[in-house]
Design a protein around this nucleic acid. Structure first.
Lengths: 198, 198
DNA sequence: CGGTTTTCTTAACATACATCAATAAGAAAT
DNA sequence: ATTTCTTATTGATGTATGTTAAGAAAACCG
């Protein structure tokens, strides 16, 4: 039950002592979500940080019906509506299970308790926040710098597993276009520049 | 010399003891930059976190000549090419003084020393990273959700001081359009919808 | 398996934005 | 004050992307 999250933390600094790890395990509980279920709902305060044991999740914003996908998070990663979690204010994004998904959850109160009892968790909390900052900062830079077509090309170039696992209309909003336009982009990429030289 | 940064930290949790504050002050040094000078150059490792005593700075990416403005940071705020600072890898963004600017700088090594000696700095480091995450996460969401015109309207609605202090062509790249197009957006906003009802 | 729903593609047309070029308006320098 | 450089505006034109609508393909379900 704890193998995956333990393996994840084994690669993290600082390493936890047995006592710290035991305290951490005691705070974790398992949750299962069916395909399509919402893990975090817009408008509600997010009370947990989740570790994805198995499955796939999607963050998205809902602009009166138009769903804008922000991020897809799968196996062996932490996920949370972290802004809401930190500020204790209602979340503006939704977190959805894209398929049968198993999570380990850690509550806000338990985390504060760990911060208070063990300085090592303070350091981990700092490093996690720093990593999150780096991820989203890169993502944000890509949004400013690249066209939607270039962002799609990057998914291909990186061999992103999202291309297999995520429906195209969600990828479309992720790269910032309509599903119709992504379809055009794909067509264009498949039949590359054919200049009529004969 | 330390009034502004001290006032800033007075509103932060946790409060520093006199000893901690003294240790912090001992690490800070003042730097002045002239208008147009680069504080952090793309390709170089950023070795400092800066507190802006006075002046105005701009982050931007350089896509072969086309400058894309990411953020403007002025008086009484911390600023750094934080990804580069954290990872010790070359920065991909430039940080420029938009006018005569005075900064207080804290080096990477000194910060590690403070982290090591005083747990309070660990907590501050965590909270700072969390705040940064929140800021950029909101910015990133706005990029996905709003049109350039709506982003400009937001600047107006928030009474953003950037409208006065930053040249329009920099604001244009900040909201994601060309200077020509921002000019047209402004024109359209000034002469609002005139439907011919007579 | 057949039917139903969801997802993907295609086309025609509309709109937002980029590009290029010219000019005008301001700011800085001499 | 005159010149020079930078910044802002405007118009003409091109391209990328959105919208609407229809049909095709794929996934799901009884």
């Amino acid at each position: 039950m704890f193998e995956k999250i333990k393996a994840y933390h084994f690669n993290l600094l600082p390493q936890l002592t047995n006592q710290e790890w035991q305290a951490y395990e005691d705070c974790l509980t398992v949750k299962k979500y069916a395909k399509g279920e919402l893990i975090v709902k817009e408008g509600e305060i997010c009370n947990y940080v989740y570790f994805v044991n198995s499955g796939l999740t999607r963050f998205y914003l809902d602009a009166d019906g138009r769903e804008v996908s922000l991020e897809f998070i799968g196996d062996n990663e932490y996920v949370s509506a972290y802004e809401s979690f930190l500020t204790r204010m209602p979340a503006c994004e939704n977190l959805e299970a894209l398929k049968e998904t198993e999570l380990m959850q850690l509550s806000f109160d338990d985390l504060q308790m760990l911060y208070h009892l063990y300085p090592a968790f303070q350091i981990i909390g700092r490093i996690v926040a720093e990593q999150l900052f780096i991820c989203i900062s890169r993502h944000s830079n890509a949004l400013m710098l690249l066209t939607p077509e270039q962002r799609y090309q990057q998914l291909i170039a990186n061999g992103s597993p999202l291309l297999q696992q995520v429906p195209q209309y969600m990828l479309a909003s992720y790269i910032g276009v309509t599903p119709e336009h992504l379809s055009r982009i794909r067509k264009k990429i498949m039949k590359p520049v054919l200049v009529a030289v004969y």
